[in-house]
Design a protein around this nucleic acid. Structure first.
Lengths: 148, 148
DNA sequence: CTTCTTTGACTACAAATGTAATCATAATTT
DNA sequence: AAATTATGATTACATTTGTAGTCAAAGAAG
């Protein structure tokens, strides 16, 4: 078994919950609820529901401490992010992914270190990068493909 | 009014439909259905439903041609991709977005041109890139933040 | 003209999701 | 001990999504 099974499907709202638990490393419901009530217009029961679903999905683990639970992430944040992003991109036309990345890189705040790492990785890819990546939106090669 | 309103929320299954219409520029239901039946285990009625939902959402436009419809994309593919990707990333911890992009860049097939463009844009960002991007998972500055 | 087929319209239905109320029990406070 | 509060468990409910069946009208085929 991998230590970090990134199998669970985490919805948008659930993702908000995971973010605070990931950041805190572990937390009881009181903490999670009070933090999230500040960020959203969510009622406590809503957050409880989300926590419950995450536990059922295996994204959060519980340790009973007296009458309460301490929740801990069962999946790695970075791994979950990587997987979600890759899944999202793979669902889009391969031919346009590069441009999408360019737009995203333009709009996001990235640290100097991240920018440098990205450049390094890209430069390493350059030599073997194909001249073009074809559209993969149609079955096999149904003549028609995305325009260039 | 912007020509390309990327407001509609397109689900995963619907995205598959959009991809073929985007690629073909326009298509009648027969064409869409036969192409998608090859790529998925979808029955014709399923695809009809998806097309109908996309029309209702405003993602596809219709032109009546005799008894049939010709469907055309009402939103731009690249713009939709950019927006979806940005939305996905913005829902994640700002501190880890850079790393996620690195992983994605490593795993994706990118054309030489895309790689070059990415490098160019990144190099342009380098001078003004901040030393670090802080975690934004907790309200304001609730002392705790993601580890470095 | 009658029958088969194509195509769009309408209906169906379970699972996931967003959002929350209620309830019971354990803990705290008076 | 009684009243209050906190916490997890259970239930609720509309919407979205995935997946598909049914039906009627319009054409095509015989």
């Amino acid at each position: 078994m991998a230590t970090t099974e990134v199998t669970a499907t985490i919805s948008d709202a659930e993702w908000r919950v995971m973010r605070v638990v990931w950041t805190l490393k572990q937390a009881d419901s009181r903490t999670i609820i009070s933090l999230l009530e500040k960020q959203h217009d969510w009622k406590a029961p809503t957050i409880k529901t989300l926590i419950g679903r995450l536990v059922k999905k295996g994204a959060l683990g519980t340790t009973k401490q007296g009458r309460q639970y301490i929740y801990t992430p069962q999946i790695n944040e970075q791994a979950a992010m990587d997987a979600a992003l890759l899944t999202e991109l793979e669902q889009m036309c391969a031919m346009h992914r590069g441009t999408a990345l360019v737009h995203v890189v333009d709009q996001l705040d990235l640290s100097r270190g991240d920018v440098e790492t990205l450049i390094a990785h890209l430069e390493q890819k350059l030599p073997t990068a194909p001249a073009s990546v074809p559209c993969d939106c149609l079955p096999d090669d149904c003549e028609g493909s995305c325009d260039a």
